[in-house]
């Protein structure tokens, strides 16, 4: 199980297909990610927030206008290569 041969096609298939996703914020800035279909999107969100230096709780992510829960995977949401996730900031209000 210590195999390091990344080029082994069988193993690659076993790991799941890799797609690229774009996370886009409202100012139009884009960050590109390569993700496996079975990877929880939480990991993408955390990586994005780290890169941007923002608190993960201060942003929301949307796919096709619907909120994305970090525990779901690209496979579950039917994402395809090149799909775009929108990033929107937290909002508050009272008065």
């Amino acid at each position: 199980m210590e195999e390091t041969g990344n080029n082994d096609p069988v193993k690659k298939e076993g790991q799941g297909q890799v797609i690229s996703l774009v996370v886009k914020d409202q100012t139009g800035n884009e960050v590109h990610f390569k993700v496996k279909m079975k990877t929880r999107l939480e990991k993408v969100f955390n990586a994005y927030c780290n890169k941007k230096g923002v608190d993960t709780n201060s942003v929301r992510f949307l796919f096709d206008g619907t909120r994305v829960n970090g525990s779901s995977t690209p496979e579950e949401l039917g994402m395809e290569d090149g799909d775009c996730i929108d990033c929107v900031i937290e909002q508050v209000g009272g008065c």
Partner: peptide, 16 residues
């Protein structure tokens, strides 16, 4: 509807 007009300011807004 939130009244935050600045999409780069997190936790912005004061009214719903």
């Amino acid at each position: 509807v939130n009244d935050n007009t600045d999409p780069s300011r997190a936790a912005g807004g004061s009214h719903w």
